[in-house]
Design a protein around this nucleic acid. Structure first.
Length: 354
DNA sequence: AGTTATCCTGAGAGACTAAG
DNA sequence: CTTAGTCTCTCAGGATAACT
């Protein structure tokens, strides 16, 4: 699809005067497609101009295309719901909407968003009894009762039990100070941390999935729970995954098409990747597209991030205590769930999906 | 010698736009 | 409406010069 690759010469471009002419015509026709005769006369006029005469001929189809595209662009612009949380005028930081703990400590970034989610800070990690016990940690995220968004937990400060017997923990959110500490219900609002997706992991994001999705608003940009409504697979290129995901945010039911970089998948989907890798290994052939190989830098960056986030944070409450409660967050679906205890029947992760 | 400032370059990502 | 090529902007990192 798209234009044929240019064979050395510059790609076709309408000149500024041509665009101005066509814009005038479009306005005169109230954004409706002008008659064919008008388009043909425009094409002829452009071809006869001093800039083009003898060099390039502007075809009717090109003019027609321009009108089609411009009309579509105008409609697309005007149909944007006012006030809807869309891409904003916030400074374009953005190598990606990386969550606080994902930034390498050695490479601090300017605050990319209004909410203080930007600080490079290791998340709280709890050693997990997995197959690789010595090097595995569990990281947590909690849903804030203030804004309903999810934040990485930097530190567990205290724990207590409600009268109902439900456990609560006091957490310090990564990148926040003591004034933002919150008590959160372990069963409902605390869970294992969602995972940012590498380009090759887009295949693990499927319609119906609960994800953590980066929603950018005018005043804030936060991670919220969302569900994937549809996944549009696209060919990967040097930039990595170009797939698009239609998601619906749980907190406001708004829908948005987002790229993979805004999506954090739940750890419970790990098994899909493992299955995929297992099958691709047995087939002994390179996987097709998607997934495709991530760039070396991307992989290195990812690894760097993970290394950082594995650093255990200082804690006010023993991780073991919290762990005994919060380890329940692992979904039984996960093949990594060797650490799941037999304590829980319903997991916080499941509760948070409600 | 060590630190800081400036310039240059390449990569990455989003926006734009012609074409299917 | 989607796809894909191109443009443009931003940023990180390296090289070099200027300064202490």
């Amino acid at each position: 699809m798209g234009r044929p690759p240019s064979n050395g010469g510059p790609a076709f471009r309408f000149t500024q005067t041509e665009v101005a002419d066509m814009e005038t015509v479009l306005q005169e026709h109230h954004n409706q497609m002008p008659a064919r005769e008008i388009l043909e006369s425009l094409a002829e006029k452009f071809s006869e101009s001093t800039e083009r005469k003898g060099r390039t001929i502007v075809q009717f189809k090109q003019v027609w295309n321009w009108f089609q595209n411009r009309r579509y662009a105008i409609r697309a612009k005007s149909s944007k719901v006012p006030g809807k949380l869309n891409v904003t005028s916030m400074p374009r930081d953005d190598s990606n909407p990386v969550r606080n703990v994902l930034q390498p400590v050695a490479a601090p970034m300017p605050p990319p968003m209004a909410a203080p989610m930007s600080t490079a800070m290791p998340a709280t990690t709890v050693p997990v009894a997995t197959r690789h016990m010595s090097e595995s940690f569990m990281e947590f995220e909690a849903k804030s009762s203030r804004d309903g968004a999810c934040y990485d937990v930097a530190t567990f400060l205290a724990h207590r039990y409600m009268e109902t017997g439900d456990p609560e923990v006091q957490v310090r959110f990564a990148g926040f100070g003591p004034e933002e500490d919150e008590w959160v219900k372990v069963r409902k609002h605390l869970r294992q941390r969602s995972l940012p997706c590498e380009a090759s992991e887009c295949v693990a994001v499927l319609p119906g999935d609960l994800i953590l999705c980066f929603q950018e608003g005018k005043d804030q940009a936060l991670y919220f729970d969302a569900h994937v409504l549809d996944a549009q697979r696209r060919r990967h290129d040097v930039r990595g995954c170009r797939c698009r995901f239609l998601v619906r945010y749980d907190h406001d039911q708004s829908e948005e098409i987002v790229p993979l970089r805004k999506v954090c998948r739940r750890p419970e989907t790990d098994y899909r990747l493992q299955q995929l890798h297992a099958s691709s290994n047995t087939e002994q052939k390179p996987s097709t597209n998607p997934p495709t190989a991530t760039t070396p830098t991307e992989t290195m960056q990812k690894q760097q991030n993970r290394d950082v986030s594995r650093t255990p944070a200082p804690v006010g409450v023993s991780h073991a205590n919290v762990f005994s409660i919060a380890a329940q967050t692992a979904n039984p679906e996960s093949k990594n769930a060797a650490f799941t205890t037999t304590i829980a029947t319903s997991t916080p992760a499941q509760n948070m999906q409600e």
